[in-house]
Nucleic acid binder design. Sequence first.
DNA 1: CTGTTAGCGCATTCAC
DNA 2: GTGAATGCGCTAACAG
Lengths: 339, 339
Amino acid sequence: MDIDELARRSGVSAATVSRALNGRPEVSAATRARIVALAAELGYRPNASARTLASRRSGLIGLLWDTGYRSGGRQHPFLQEVLIGLKAALSDRGQGLILLPIVPPDDEDGYVRLARQYTLDGIVMMGVDQHTPQVRALLATPVPCVGLDLALDGPRTASVGSDNRTAAADAVAHLHALGHRRIATITGPLDLWPAAERLAGFRAELARRRLRRRPGYEVTGDFFAASGAAGMRRLLDLPTPPTAVFVAGDAMAIAAMRAAADAGRTLPGDVAVVGFDDIDAAAMVRPGLTTIAQDYRRFGTTAAAVLAELAAAPATEPSRSVLLPTRLVVRESSGGTAT
Amino acid sequence: MDIDELARRSGVSAATVSRALNGRPEVSAATRARIVALAAELGYRPNASARTLASRRSGLIGLLWDTGYRSGGRQHPFLQEVLIGLKAALSDRGQGLILLPIVPPDDEDGYVRLARQYTLDGIVMMGVDQHTPQVRALLATPVPCVGLDLALDGPRTASVGSDNRTAAADAVAHLHALGHRRIATITGPLDLWPAAERLAGFRAELARRRLRRRPGYEVTGDFFAASGAAGMRRLLDLPTPPTAVFVAGDAMAIAAMRAAADAGRTLPGDVAVVGFDDIDAAAMVRPGLTTIAQDYRRFGTTAAAVLAELAAAPATEPSRSVLLPTRLVVRESSGGTAT
DNA sequence: CTGTTAGCGCATTCAC
DNA sequence: GTGAATGCGCTAACAG
C-alpha cells in the first residue's frame, strides 16, 4: 500500500494524496475528506524514509544520553520518566525518538554527522558534558537542541530543568519552620548546573531568613552515596554541628542518614535530613526521606514542546531556559508533617 | 558531501563507492582502500533515509516498551541498563534504536504498520502483554522480535531472560545452607514468565533438598510493595511461620522486611529474606537485602545478537529462548556471608 | 572488477 | 484545485 495505490483508489493523483494527507491548503475539502477516510480505512502510512528523503525533515528527535554522568548511584534518577514524557509528547506530534550512539571524543563532528545522517529534527541531551568538542560542534549548528538539567549555549538551544533554586529554598524553609536554625548542606559537583543552583537557593533562603552561614556548613559532594556519608561525618565532627542538613541528592542523603545513625545520632531528633530527587529508595528506607520531587515526566513533554518552538523560530543567540516547579515530599527524616 | 561528490573525488562511479563502503566483494582492494580512506577523511556518512529507501533495510531496531507493567514500584528495575546494553551492541553493528509509540488497542495492526513505516530490521519488546491483538499481529509477521522477560511465539521470535529457575533454586540453597528448613515464598503474578519460573525453581530446590512444602508457604504477590508487606504478614500469622522467605522481587522484599519489623520480628534472626533484582534500594535499606542480581546490560547485548540471528535465519516456528546467568548478592537480610 | 541505468516512495516544483 | 514531471541520495540489476 503506497501512495500511488492510494491515489489510484481515490481517483486522484499521488500529488493530491500527498497534499491532502499533509494538510496543505490547496486541496478541496471534499477530496481531502475522501482521501483521508480511505487512507484510514486502508491503514496507509507514508514510508518514513521516502518522506524524509523528499521533504528533508524526518520527524525524528535524537536522544543524546551519556551514561557517564549518573547523579544518583546506579540508576540515573530520571531517565525512565523523562522517556515516558518524551515519547508521549513526541508521538502526539507524530514524531519519533531515536537513541543516538555516543561518539568517540576524537570524532569532533560525530554528532553533527549523526544529525545529518538521520536528518534529525532536533536533539535532546541529558547527562552529557556540554563542553566537549563533539557537543560544542553540535550546539553551534542550527539543529534545535534542548538540554535537560544542562545549561546549553548556541544559536538554537534551550534548557529545561527544575527550578532548583526555589526548590532548595523550599527545603530550607521547611527545616526552618520546624525550628532548625543550624542548617548545613551537602552539595553536588558545583560545575553542574543543578548542583550550583541548589546551593544558590540554599544560601539565598538562609539570607532571607537571617540565618547565619556558619563555617564548614557547606560540604561539596558528587551526588554519589560515598560522598554523602563522608559529608555527614564532617558535619557532625564540627565544633557546633548542624541540626539539619539539606543534601542535594537522595543517594547522598540516604548514605548521610546511615552515617549519622552509625555515629550514634538519632534521626530526625539529633539531625534532620532533606534530600533531592525523590528516588524510589527514599520511601523505602527508614526513617523515610523527606525530599524534593521533580516532575521528570514533564521534563520530557516540555523538551518536546521547546524543540518544536526552536524549530519554528529563527535562530537566536540567547538560549532560553524553562524552569519547572518541584514538590516537597515530607517524610520522617525531617520529622515534619505534610503540608 | 554526498555519494556523487565522493565518487568524483575518488575518480570512480557512485556505484563503486557504494560497493566499497558496504564491503561488497567485487571491489579491488586498492580502490576500496582509497575510497575508504577518502570517506573517512571527508567524514562522509551515507544518508540513512536514502539508504533505507534503496536497500529496504534501515538498520533500525524498534523498542516496544510499555510503561504499564512495572515490576518494581516506580522504576522499572531494568530499563536503563537494558538500554545501555542495547545501544552499545547495536551501534557496534552499525544499527540504531528507535522508541516506538504505544498504539491504541483498537488499532490491531498498528505495530505492523510502524514496522513497515520505519522499515524496521527488528523489534525488542519489554513490559508488554504479548497476548493483545496488536502484539500478536506483529509476532505473526516475519519481522524479527525478541522479548525480554517475555515468552514470545511466532515465526521469527525469541526470548531473552535470566535463568529464573536456577536463580530461585540458588536462593533456596543459600537459605538452606544457613540452616533454614522452613522456607516460604512470595511470588509475582504467575501469568508472567519470570514469576512462574521463579516459583518453579523454588519448588524444585525444596524437593531436591527434601524440604517439605508446607501449607500457606506460597503467597502470590504482584511485584508491588504493598503485596510484599501483605504477604509477609500472612506468613507470620501462620501457626508455624517460616524462618526464611524468598521474595520474587525486591520492592516486595523490602516492604516485607518492614512488615516483619513492624510485627516485632528481628531480621535476619527471626526471619531471613532473600529478594530478586538487586535494585538500588536493596543496598540502601538496612538490613541490606540479600538478593539475586540480574545482568540487565547483557539482556540488551543478547537481544541485539539474537535479533541478528533471527534476521539471518529462515523463519522457524519453534521460538528459541536464551537464559542468562544470575548472581546471588549476600547482604545482612539473610545473615549469610558472601561466598 | 567497474560504469550505466533504474528505481526505492514520497514531496514538491511547475504547468494547467 | 489538480496532474505531470522532477529529484531527494542511495543500492541493485544489468552490462561490459
